[in-house]
Design a protein around this nucleic acid. Structure first.
Lengths: 326, 326
DNA sequence: TGTCGCTACTAGAGCGCTCTAGTCAGATGC
DNA sequence: GCATCTGACTAGAGCGCTCTAGTAGCGACA
């Protein structure tokens, strides 16, 4: 027999199936008394509308497909924020995980099979051409990656501003000898480098960039280069938290942090927040990223023009790895 | 007009809708020639079966509902493994995230609305009574948490064995003075403590347990207690990786690791694998956990008797925080 | 030649909803 | 008193599939 259907509720309440539908959709056309009676009958039977049938019945699925990397904790934050954003727009989320053994195109296909109205891809690695192809059949929003693909909307953090915030924080503390450990050719690295350089120049200071990369190891390696290249620097902005953690691990052997050296990371990962690391960092504004992604997808759906590349300003999270110079 | 339907494919291939269904379900009853012709027509139209309609049409949804914590990277591993396990059983996964702003019961309800055949809950925090209630309407498997609730199957790592492995690794390296930093009243803590104690006793050694907890801070605090209580210990097994990382951070100020002190964590988190931490640890066998969870759910579905509490042995991941005593 | 058995296919009734196009009282207007 | 309107409710046709029951065609066998 399985779970109760709308028919069962209708029979118990002594009304038609259609009326039950009206009540459960919260649509106009039922008196308050009947409404209450139907809901009571539904509750008694433990009725819950079948989502599949509901989706099939109406033209619009009110479903937003989201792909995310199962390992990226930043994606976790975004998914949470997307739930909130989608819900307030009356949409539901269909999640599809990307993992080493589950490719992104696989994940996307399964979302399409559910007839999601739009796609929100978190940090996708698909080629621009593949993204453009997806965008042809439904609105496609890329979050947290800078890509140019026709028809694809991008919502990302303004990394140039992020870097500027980091440098300005250090300037405000009184630092003048500020170096930057860069992220090599990682996405986002050019923007963060530019933000650093521009802010330094605006303050009439000399930028000093140490080559680095996105991992702890590269941060650790950069620490050695840093000691040689910029021994007199009193502060450093690092490409990201992971790199900063590796950097700190080495640098602490010869410098007290923050007394002798202030360090800022980027991303506000959970590792940065660990009490024994307690890294000052730049946080991406996940609720706004999520809200903009949702709004953009819905705007496309509605045929409203969208801004294809939106940047959201990040914020500084001051912790204990930064302080005034000695 | 939207996406092509089965009807469109049928028309193009010059066959009935039912035949197209047969072909796409890979069911017997179509000649090879027709099969090819139908698939060609489908490909030409870019047809993909509508998942919702497919689910509605058949009695069984072949859908496994999974709740997971969006922040727990361990859950990420499990989700990946579950995709693999479910797929080989011909099932698909419906994911529902649990987050601070999205309660577990919320997540479960949305899975039920999709008429999942069974529920797989990763580290759920629901009360046993709530779990039992869920188990009444469909198979419910709890992964990575020890709970006793009628009708609920549990699949978890054998933590006693995990602790034993840790101690045996240290014994094999030649250690005899081995302490344990425990996890307080965290789930799993009693089992891990027991495993440590039993293995020590079996080796005719005196167990020494230092109170601790699951976080970095508690690990760091335990490090101070440890230096007072067990100054002569040459090795220590810590409740989990997070605690071990905090412990290491403090202990390294007075002891060289592993020369003067060997340290083992538990969980094999990504943090443990970071090259500058490189923590020897105990890894949970996620593929097997996932496989057992899936198998158990399907067995319940089939009416086969299940083992309500299954434990999977973990494995030791040797890294550089352990070595022979000086 | 009749009928049995097969394979290859089709017709059509669901699945559990949504939603358009009604019906049918009873209130309102003139 | 009659047409008109409105609010409350129902009938029934989909949505895009699955799946059971059934048919058509054909070779085999007695």
């Amino acid at each position: 027999m399985g779970r109760p259907t709308m028919e069962d509720v209708a029979a118990l309440a002594g009304v038609s199936r259609a009326l039950v539908s009206i009540v459960y959709r919260d649509a106009p056309g039922a008196s308050d008394a009947t409404r209450a009676r139907v809901l009571a009958a539904g509750a008694e039977l433990g009725y819950r509308p079948d989502h599949r049938a509901r989706l099939l019945g109406r033209t619009r699925t009110r479903l937003l497909g989201v792909t995310f990397d199962v390992q990226a904790s930043f994606h976790g934050d975004l998914v949470e924020a997307l739930y909130t954003a989608a819900e307030s727009a009356g949409y539901d989320l269909a999640l599809s995980a990307v993992a080493p053994s589950r490719s992104e195109s696989r994940a996307v296909q399964s979302l399409l099979d559910y007839r999601c109205e739009a796609l929100i891809l978190l940090g996708p690695t698909l080629k621009p051409s593949a993204l453009a192809a997806l965008a042809e059949s439904q609105p496609t929003v890329v979050v947290a990656r800078k890509v140019r693909a026709p028809g694809v909307d991008v919502v990302r953090t303004d990394d140039t501003t992020g870097s500027r915030l980091a440098v300005e924080h250090l300037l405000a503390l009184g630092h003048t000898k500020i170096a930057h450990i860069d992220g090599g050719k990682t996405p986002g690295s050019p923007e963060r480098r530019t933000g650093y350089r521009n802010t330094m120049r605006a303050a009439r200071l000399t930028p000093l960039i140490v080559p680095g990369g996105p991992t702890e190891d590269e941060g650790a390696r950069a620490a050695k280069t840093f000691l040689d290249d910029a021994p007199r620097a009193t502060a450093v902005t690092v490409f990201n938290d992971r790199s900063a953690v590796g950097f700190l691990d080495i640098i602490r052997q010869s410098r007290r942090v923050p007394d002798e050296l202030s360090v800022i990371g980027y991303d506000n990962t959970t590792v940065a927040a660990l009490s024994h690391i307690d890294l000052t960092t730049i946080a991406q504004d996940t609720p706004r990223l999520a809200a903009h992604a949702t709004t953009t997808a819905l705007a496309r759906l509605a045929g409203t023009p969208t801004t294809p590349d939106q940047t959201i300003p990040p914020t500084l999270i001051p912790r204990t790895t930064t302080g005034p110079p000695r």
